Simulated assay, not measured.
Amino acid sequence: MNDGTVTLPWLVIRQDDNGNRYSVGRYATRAEAQKIADSLDRRGHQQLYWVQRVDQNGRGGDGAFD
């Protein structure tokens, strides 16, 4: 990138028992994001965690974080 910004295209998302979705964090690589999602998932809570790539405008593949 020429403008000095860092691209963090991988998002970890948490979905709670009521279906609400929250961004947990953004990461540079899928492997890094997956490591975080896996570590959170192992805590034994009822929430779901997954990794999703976002586009340059910050939108996820399903439009959940427009």
Rank of each mutant, 00 (worst) to 15 (best):
M1W: 04
M1D: 14
M1H: 14
M1Q: 06
N2C: 07
D3A: 06
D3M: 06
G4D: 02
G4K: 03
G4C: 01
G4A: 01
T5L: 05
T5E: 10
T5M: 08
V6Y: 09
T7W: 07
T7Q: 08
L8H: 12
L8Q: 15
P9G: 02
P9L: 03
P9E: 14
W10S: 06
W10Q: 13
W10K: 10
W10L: 07
W10E: 14
W10G: 06
W10A: 07
L11K: 03
L11Y: 07
V12A: 00
V12Q: 01
V12M: 00
I13Y: 02
I13V: 15
R14I: 02
R14W: 00
R14A: 02
R14K: 01
Q15A: 13
Q15S: 10
Q15I: 10
D16E: 06
D17S: 14
N18T: 12
N18M: 05
N18V: 09
G19M: 04
G19E: 05
N20I: 13
N20H: 07
N20D: 10
R21Q: 03
R21H: 01
R21V: 02
S23Q: 12
S23G: 07
V24F: 11
V24A: 09
V24H: 06
G25Q: 09
R26D: 10
Y27H: 13
Y27A: 11
A28S: 06
A28G: 00
T29W: 13
T29R: 09
R30F: 12
A31C: 02
A31V: 11
A31W: 01
A31N: 05
A31M: 05
A31I: 04
E32F: 05
E32T: 13
A33M: 08
A33S: 10
A33K: 08
A33T: 07
K35V: 06
K35W: 11
K35F: 05
I36W: 02
I36H: 06
A37Q: 02
A37N: 03
D38T: 05
D38G: 03
D38E: 14
S39D: 15
L40I: 11
D41V: 05
R42G: 12
R42A: 14
G44E: 13
G44I: 14
G44N: 14
H45V: 07
H45Q: 03
Q46N: 06
L48D: 10
L48Q: 05
Y49R: 00
Y49M: 01
W50P: 05
W50R: 04
V51P: 05
Q52T: 08
Q52V: 06
R53T: 07
R53A: 11
V54T: 08
V54F: 15
V54S: 08
Q56Y: 12
Q56R: 11
Q56T: 10
N57V: 03
N57A: 03
G60I: 10
G60P: 10
G61P: 15
G61L: 13
D62K: 11
G63E: 15
G63D: 14
G63H: 15
A64P: 11
F65T: 04
F65D: 01
D66L: 08
